[in-house]
Computed example of a mutant assay.
Amino acid sequence: MDSIFKALADPTRRALLDSLRAKPGQSLLDLQGQLDMSRFGVMKHLGVLEEAKLIVTHRKGRFKYHYLNALPLQDAIDRWIEPLLEQPAARAVINLKTQLEGTPKMSKPDFMMQTYIHCTQDALWHALTDPEANAAFNFVAGSCVREDNKLILKFEDGRKMLVLTETQLTPKTRIESTFEPHWAGPDVQLDQSRFVYLIEPQGDNCLLTLEHFDIPAGQEGVADGWHRTLAGLKTWLETGQTIKFAHAEMEA
């Protein structure tokens, strides 16, 4: 917690976070060009942000790309907003390609986030692959069913919302899936993308990394959906409670 407030205390670091919020996946060179500061100075600020888990990075070749990680901020807010959790309205306020033969080449993610969850590796793997668990922590799904390697999430009224097709699994460590949205209705076909869950055991906890690739134009809002969904996952695994971190208009 101290590292988060230390990181946010500096205006340069806040400017870096603002830049990464507006444009995820920037390199050191991209960020340095926005500041009147040496390469070494920018690296020091990024190091403080990374230590506080406010940014996560993805290395591709010689380049390292940086992404805003908002979940630690949510955790900090929840520490003092906890008494309001029983009030749904208050919580609402704060709150690709098709499957190919072989392994698709991974480009730089369009969106990344990380969170630590106090649970076992087995429990996290089960939560990410079990349909009932997905329905419990997804911020808007009313139900979820599995058909072979597909997780099909549905709205409360039974309409199909999202289809996640698992394309590659490394048991208890890595899940690669396509992301096929259906929330616009049966007559509107939206382009699909792909994402990866990475699970790293950390003593009594697990570090979960989410990488989302090839997000089509017009679907940038999936980043907000991931924040809400993974906040629900963390809450469900750590407390056993199902809390839907939905938009206010969804609960109205």
Rank of each mutant, 00 (worst) to 15 (best):
A7L: 08
P11C: 11
A15K: 08
A15V: 00
S19V: 06
G25R: 13
Q26R: 15
Q26Y: 15
S27K: 07
D30F: 14
S38H: 09
G41V: 09
L46R: 02
V48E: 06
V48P: 13
V48N: 07
E51A: 15
I55A: 05
G61A: 15
K64V: 09
Y67R: 00
Y67C: 04
A70D: 04
P72T: 03
L73F: 11
A76P: 05
R79V: 14
Q87G: 03
R91H: 07
T98N: 08
E101A: 14
S107H: 13
D110S: 11
D110I: 00
I117V: 03
I117S: 01
I117M: 00
T120L: 01
A123Q: 13
H126F: 04
D130R: 03
D130Q: 05
E132K: 07
A135C: 09
A135D: 01
V140G: 03
E147V: 07
D148Y: 04
N149L: 03
K154F: 14
L169D: 04
K172P: 11
R174I: 01
R174Q: 07
I175G: 02
E176Y: 10
E176S: 05
T178H: 07
L190S: 08
D191N: 07
Y197D: 12
L198E: 15
I199D: 13
E200F: 03
T209R: 10
L210P: 14
F213D: 04
D214V: 10
A217T: 07
W226C: 11
H227V: 09
R228D: 15
A231R: 15
E238L: 00
G240E: 00
T242D: 06
K244S: 06
E249V: 11
M250F: 12
E251G: 11
